[in-house]
Design a protein around this nucleic acid. Structure first.
Lengths: 399, 399
DNA sequence: GCGATATGTTGTGAGGCAAAACAAATACAG
DNA sequence: CTGTATTTGTTTTGCCTCACAACATATCGC
């Protein structure tokens, strides 16, 4: 976060800020001319032209060849559209989970170029083997020139992180006090930025990153699997909280006088256990439960109703505190939501006063939702921020 | 909020940023020399000297005369200490409450120069009379040259505000859809910045503003009177949420299957009602209750215990979601906290896993806690931000 | 008294943006 | 088809801000 007080503002920094502004604007709007950029950023055409010239030379952007776009209908000389060069750089996200290693590679457009997953016993492997396996899966088959274009590695793990990015404790993996990013840097080019992040937070970043909408405002992401995690985004930026645990709502209490946690009432484990009891079958799956709910099977509907009520309670608690205007549900259990959306909204309304605005609720979909993708997006976001390594090239050590 | 994308960065803006950085650093550190400033802001001594020269000419800062400070013990020429000129500007905060009008005036050091309160029936008065009364109380006795130095008016009311700063609805006052700041501007110099804010949010700003500590991190403020309001600060900046209602925890539900709200279990009304019932007395006061708790009067202790438990539950819910590292309790009811702090912490610990760090809890004190003071601080903060009017002097209308 | 050290000030140079002027490319009117 | 209006991209000029280096100033310690 660029702190007004602690950063000097030199003429060189102006240029860096403006270059980033051009890149970010181009990422948002896909294709713009130099004049469009000047209008959007409220700078002179001469300035935008100058900055564009530099970015063209760096190979980060290019002029669009497509002549179909040229006929604009307006009078005047048509502008030359500019766009990001997707393959100019790449970003890799890795998720070290309890059961899988997942690797996602995205380009400068933040589009997925590669998705790899392999089974993995995170608890048994230990830190060193886990990391080695993840790095091999990520970079093992990558050509040297491709690796050289990599501008960031993000690592997501189910761990509590401290403010400095070190793992405080990861119960599911049995880890404690580990500087995962630091360890990874030892086996990678020294210029490659590496960051580690909690998997729920990474998921939160990824779940909204591609979308044009909802970059503005407060978004709550909830990831529902066996456990229930969450993350909060404020104006598209991750809100980590005082100790990196913001949004971790799985252990939210359902009442002062009850030991029940949210995770225990809307998580996959609880759903499957209840479904198992109600059907009497030994083998049950989420897919079956969903079908039974669709078929209005009474016992399944009852389970779904309880789920909806617990979810609505949690959402109302969170909405009351952070006043989120958008809520995105992810994880396999999220598939249950569309079947009971009306019930959730009814409960939500009953928990709030009439004047309190209800948030928009949607379900995350597609392969582009997951902690690995989010970790890659985190590095993409970093590349387009003032922390970018591109900016530190010119620093000279104090003599 | 300075948006990287939507603001051009001109050489002129560098200077503005750096002037602000000097003012803010001086506000934080009280007294610094030019060389100190250069080190702190990582700029050249010549630059800091140049900026200081300009600020001296503007009359916002001055050189300290006090020669006692000069002997530093170190070798080398001692620096000339600089400090803000407190009376160079002033900021006024107004609280239009249900029962009182309150006005607070602070100086550039953010110290209280004036505090006025008068009884008032907000519900009966209506918008126009309320505002007129508030403005008269604030500016009626102010000399013209003093008014000219006023650089901001903040208005706090018990109202839901939208993102643009307009009142959506204020149930306690019976108001709806009112642009309070706009109305106030009509009767004031056009250059005077005016902002309206929810009283709980204003309180939150004020409760931490003076302190050197806790400017960093996430702070939750809770104001407990008849009602219970709250506000969230992230790195010293108010977090308003998607619709300006973040931190409004008074109506937090205590359980999914109960209609009880937090306000109904820790607010002043509930405390007094229960105390009244337990003592059988017709007239009871908070002061009496506190004394009875100190005297270990069993029924009073029981009330306090329930209060502690409900408070701990609410704090644990909030901590789980926003991961606050600091909690500040305010309002008259907060006086109960020191008597049961240990109980609250015990409950809080029982609601959380062992690995979850507990926040620091403290009680706001002194006249410098209140919505009016907070509203004044909000304008002080604005003066030292990029939104400051000082910066818009040089803008030329587009030709 | 003298060197060491730190501060404040001055002059020079480089980097960045805005404004204005100009060349290029298109639409439209006649 | 020609000329005008309009918009874009480029070039030139000038101004502003900062960093750097050099110098004058002030204090401490020997």
């Amino acid at each position: 976060m660029p702190d007004l007080v602690h950063s000097a503002n030199t003429p060189r920094r102006i240029r860096q800020r403006n270059e980033l502004a051009v890149l970010r604007t181009l990422h948002r709007h896909e294709r713009l001319s130099r004049a469009d950029l000047a209008r959007e950023l409220r700078m002179n055409r001469s300035s935008s032209g100058n900055i564009v010239m530099e970015l063209l030379a760096e190979g980060l952007i290019r002029e669009v060849e497509d002549d179909a776009q040229r006929s604009t209908g307006r009078a005047g000389r048509p502008g030359i559209l500019l766009e990001l060069v997707p393959d100019a750089v790449c970003f890799v996200g890795v998720e070290i989970g309890v059961e899988h290693l997942t690797v996602v590679e995205i380009d400068l457009d933040a589009r997925v170029k590669r998705w790899v997953q392999e089974p993995f016993d995170g608890k048994a492997a230990g830190v060193v083997l886990s990391l080695a396996g993840a790095l091999t899966l990520a970079f093992g088959t990558m050509a040297p020139d491709h690796l050289a274009r990599c501008e960031g590695l993000g690592i997501a793990t189910p761990a509590q992180m401290d403010g400095a990015g070190k793992i405080r404790v990861a119960p599911l993996l049995g880890w404690r006090d580990i500087d995962l990013a630091g360890l990874a840097r030892q086996d990678l080019p020294p210029t490659l930025p590496v960051m580690a992040e909690n998997d729920a937070n990474a998921f939160a970043i990824g779940a909204t990153y591609g979308r044009k909408v909802s970059h503005r405002g407060v978004t709550l992401l909830i990831n529902m699997e066996s456990g229930v995690g969450g993350g909060i985004l404020i104006n598209g930026n991750l809100f980590r909280g005082g100790t990196g645990l913001a949004g971790e709502i799985g252990h939210l209490r359902m009442a002062a006088d009850s030991g029940a946690s949210l995770e225990g009432q809307i998580g996959l484990s609880w759903l499957m256990t209840r479904y198992q009891v109600s059907t009497g079958r030994a083998q049950v799956s989420l897919r079956d439960l969903l079908q039974d709910v669709r078929d209005r099977e009474p016992s399944a509907v009852s389970i779904a109703e309880d789920w909806a009520r617990a979810l609505a309670f949690a959402l109302s608690q969170v909405a009351r505190i952070i006043d989120a205007d958008t809520i995105v549900l992810g994880g396999s259990v999220a598939a249950l939501y569309p079947l009971v959306a009306a019930r959730v909204l009814t409960h939500l309304r009953s928990f709030q006063e009439d004047t309190f605005p209800l948030p928009q609720i949607s379900v995350a979909e597609g392969p582009e939702s997951g902690a690995a993708f989010g970790a890659a997006c985190m590095m993409h976001q970093r590349f387009l921020s003032l922390d970018s390594v591109r900016l530190s090239e010119g620093v000279t050590p104090l003599s």
